[in-house]
Amino acid sequence: MSGTATAPLRDAALADLQSLKRRHPDAFRTLDRRRVAGLFAVFAALALLCFGLWRLGFSPGLLLGGLGQLAWFTGLMLPPDPGSWSILLSTLTGLGETLAIAFLGTGFAALLALPVSLLAARNTTVSGAVRFLTRRSLDTLRGVNTLIWALIWIGVVGLGPFAGVLAIVTIDVGTLGKMFSEAIEAADGRAAEGITSAGGGALHRIRYATLPEVMPVLAGQALYLFESNVRASTIIGIIGAGGIGLQLSEMIRTLEWRAVSFIILLILVMVALIDWLSARLRRAIAGEAPGQTA
């Protein structure tokens, strides 16, 4: 249908081909420099992929065998079923522990991160050197994985959820310290100026101008991190730092596939619930924000 309508146009363009080529050389060049560079990048990426597959020991036999096993396990996972009351009870305890670890970890990290972030923010810090040192320390805390911190804390306070709480606190002081300091730097400076003009000192500025303004933002960020920590604290049990991860890894190692799928299902439900609740709370805080600053 459209072929007949465009045919005269196409014939005209073909007749005028030489002139078109002269007027729009770029449109007719099949291999310009950007394209060659792009092709080269794609080729290099594929070569690295092939090297990686070979180096890491991928083979069709291994993949097929593994996928067969996986399909077999998936079949065994249905229907999800804890198997016994004691496993159900330990699963629910594990879920409670997971939530408690995330809650305590985020809460104490927020308490510790607040003073630190004041030192790391340009408008509230005492000196440039202190700001630089604080920021680098926060980077280091954040740069080490939660699981590594958990292992280190297990060495200090022993196996159990308490080590998990401390691991989450450690990494989150780094994360929240950075997020808080950025929120503080983004604060409107006029309120602080007002305090200065009324004769207030640096601490007055922080207490009566900066904090009331940024507090709703900080609370929202802490809640957001709480969501992410619920996910993180589901896995630290794998290395013995408390929470549902312990039960999950035990069930996987003992090949109790129905219990595995049951636990994973519970984790998914819990994460969805927490996300929903936290999103509602964050909206409520954000809605309250203008009232609080007024």
């Binding site: 593994g66 096993q69 996986l70 794998i238 999950l248 890894s249 996987i252 595995v260």
Partner: peptide, 10 residues
């Protein structure tokens, strides 16, 4: 968690 399960399978 996927890694744990895949280690058993592969």
């Amino acid at each position: 968690v996927f890694a744990l399960i895949f280690v058993v399978a592969f």
